[in-house]
Design a protein around this nucleic acid. Sequence first.
DNA 1: ATGAAAGCGCTAACAC
DNA 2: GTGTTAGCGCTTTCAT
Lengths: 356, 356
Amino acid sequence: MTGLLGSMPATIYEVAQKAGVGIGTVSRVLNNSSQISPQTRARVLQVIDKLNYQPHAMAQGLARKKSLTIAALMPFFTGHFYVELLKGIQQATARHKYDLILYSIEDLHDKDFYLKRALQQRRVDGVLLVSLPLSDAYAKEFQRRKLPLVLVDTSHADFDSFTVNNQSGAHAAVQHLIRLGHKRLAMITGHRESKPAQLRYTGFRRALAEAGIKLPEGLLISSDTLSGESITLNDGFNKETGYRAMQKLLQLNGIRPTAVFVASDIQALGAMQAMQESGLRVPEDMALVGFDDIELAEYVGLTTIKQPMFQMGQRAVERLMALINDPNSPRQHRRIETELIIRDSCGAKKEIKHKH
Amino acid sequence: MTGLLGSMPATIYEVAQKAGVGIGTVSRVLNNSSQISPQTRARVLQVIDKLNYQPHAMAQGLARKKSLTIAALMPFFTGHFYVELLKGIQQATARHKYDLILYSIEDLHDKDFYLKRALQQRRVDGVLLVSLPLSDAYAKEFQRRKLPLVLVDTSHADFDSFTVNNQSGAHAAVQHLIRLGHKRLAMITGHRESKPAQLRYTGFRRALAEAGIKLPEGLLISSDTLSGESITLNDGFNKETGYRAMQKLLQLNGIRPTAVFVASDIQALGAMQAMQESGLRVPEDMALVGFDDIELAEYVGLTTIKQPMFQMGQRAVERLMALINDPNSPRQHRRIETELIIRDSCGAKKEIKHKH
DNA sequence: ATGAAAGCGCTAACAC
DNA sequence: GTGTTAGCGCTTTCAT
């Protein structure tokens, strides 16, 4: 039927010809333009269907100056956090019938390269920048090009952003401990220069202050005050720092805390190991709350703060789509609230445990 | 300098004009064509650099009938396996200077939709289909269109594929147990209809046969012979089936096995839980080997079979690129070998343990 | 070696 | 309403 051209996909010309109309008409029904007589529209649609015609994405993109594609630049997968985020992004993108190009950033050189690519070459309709700081040079570039940009887990005054509310998350964690009756609390966290570490610390202090509890000396342990090989890894949020920090806490006789807020689950795991080696049990000897809700947290029954990354990914895409459709939509900086996941590491006092 | 057009990216025309050459010439240096005088080439390159010019991907794609993009269709992330795979895919794709469009398949309707999209809209130069069976209808379609396709973790006679060698992996796992001196072995696995389950079983049998060991009745437990809610989940590879299967094994007095090969780590976790509840210890009371090397495996010290997904992703992309460059390249069905990761769940006999 | 011109498949402005 | 035509930004003959 399709003759010699049978193996090549149909073009708008063939559709037009078979339907006995001009290509403009076909284009119109494709974009379901305002006024087309129902008859011709039906006829064209029929041919389209018969030829199994689908418009050529690049030709459309070129003519329309739109790609129906967005790019996500993200550091590749340090676990759960990014996987969930990517899922959310992917799903929302698909729902809008957009394609998602994934650029993974392993070092800062990559970032530049891909940013440039997204900006100039690939002409995506919008970009999502995840966890990476946006330099002023690129900020200007995005503005000049009027290319919609949404930041996720990072921020910049001039662009829309979605970040986790670290402070209120930490606050909720500590409040939970306090509600359970704990009065002598400690905190283990990452490097003091780390922004999340700072915010989580603020939340911790705030919760203590509200309960009229003060933090004795030595009950706050930041990674950078420790010694050890991998101390600097991942902003101090790693198993070894958790382990060493807990060892330090355990040496505190007399003022040993009854509960500790560990600013990351991975550190909490290290802390648990240290406790175990000292013959101490969680939560009997010491209650623990983590932060992140990594996969292992569920397995070991660690009560923790979950960051709703899936949702964050979705919302970021929704926002990006809104910006694509209305570039003048006012800037929004959204702070996503966390969720307290209660498991076994704090024991139960007046609380009902939610077992998963 | 760029005047009113300053906010739009430069085109090949502007480059040509500023360099005092025709657009054809610019195009030639862009594609570093054979013969261009070093001088003009230098001059053009200089202008390109000054204008910060980068070719427009869609225009190039349209003219060249190539998109420099591939698509990966995959069921979205059931953990580690897919994350590693995606990392490998992403990295190899980037190395070839291709872009990666990610289509996530949540149900079979998605699969159809995206397959059609990739196939007809000519957005991509090749596709990677992961873990999903390819229907004959689409197989024909890919052939007709001559669109390069590589299957990963799934296969079809007519297309290149990369799959894990389930059989030899299982064989290695069981051989390990046998070398450790175990003579009474059992196996816990997923549904009997599951292809991986079948292959792993074959590997198990082969290892036993080679050692002259026979499998007494009742020492092979498939998920579909169990009862319980989530028994059917994920082809029977889930925690509950592992748990129940182990319970069943534990009821076997007299012929209780000293070691069991569990065909998935997640089931091994369930099995361990059942043992723990019965006051039994791993490996003292029973040795365990899993399959998959999920994240938790390391945490609980489970000896297991690792599937090198990162590598598989990379190789699949390499193959796809080869096909894109030479569509007539002969078909290859690659079987990727697994790796035995020795941890603590088998104890040590004559073996040296590799501790991670 | 290089300029001119004809597409690539589509959209959109312009006629009628 | 619908056909015609001029681009979109590039590659690629075809001349020269």
